[in-house]
Design a protein around this nucleic acid. Structure first.
Lengths: 126, 126
DNA sequence: CGGTATCCAAGCGGATACTG
DNA sequence: CAGTATCCGCTTGGATACCG
């Protein structure tokens, strides 16, 4: 298991926020769980590009941070469900805000990137 | 110089957002520049824990992403100023939202972390 | 089905010294 | 003052195989 060797500076609010939703798949996981996708296998299907291992790592962190609750049913085959806590629910508006900003500005952003690309090509042709 | 070898999946809005403000110091830089701290040396003073190199890397990316504009005055000693673009300004509400969430929930979060810590200590003493 | 171990590649950032 | 080169370490996440 990994062990962090550099202490995080938890001074400002931003660092806390990023500590909690900073993982690559954490916002997606929170969003999915809030929409009723609770079981690990379902979550895995929803995000095929994320390996089981990473999803588990992120879910573990989310659990440790109090964002979600993990319920283990003692049955065979195994059954596990994740639920958003009240604390985790307070993240939803923020996540939606971030997603909305990205969607709203995706066009402008991609256009700008293309401009830069063509500019670079011009530079290369000098 | 670094060269990314894995293409980013820019499918959802979230990935765009994180692409732009995902750097360790980017939100701080955007915030500082919006508050009138424009020169590299000033920005460096404002964030002493970030090295010149990393600040430059992030500023370069922010420039390439169209978030800030870089103005180079052809004088000696060198003078450079960064300005927030209109596009970059649209990020401010989001950044404030993230900072506010972090500040608002810092207490709850730290309390929760301490509980986990003490629980772990109990486990260790078994 | 759910979780973990192991190995490994890439990302990301810090430290320092150096150039204009 | 502004920027870059080099080196190096920690972190993050992907691939696979395996256990309960």
């Amino acid at each position: 298991m990994y062990e962090k060797k550099i202490p995080k500076d938890l001074g400002c609010g931003m660092s806390i926020t990023l500590e909690i939703i900073g993982g690559k798949w954490k916002p997606c996981l929170i969003d999915s769980i809030s929409k009723g996708i609770r079981r690990p296998s379902e979550l895995h299907k929803s995000h095929p590009d994320a390996s089981k291992r990473v999803l588990n790592l992120h879910l573990k962190e989310l659990t440790e941070h109090g964002v979600v609750t993990k319920i283990i049913y003692p049955v065979l085959p195994s059954k596990v469900e994740y639920f958003l806590t009240d604390f985790g629910a307070t993240l939803l508006p923020l996540i939606l805000h971030m997603e909305k900003w990205g969607s709203d500005h995706m066009a402008v952003f991609n256009e700008f990137q293309q401009k830069k690309l063509s500019l670079r090509n011009e530079e290369y042709s000098l």
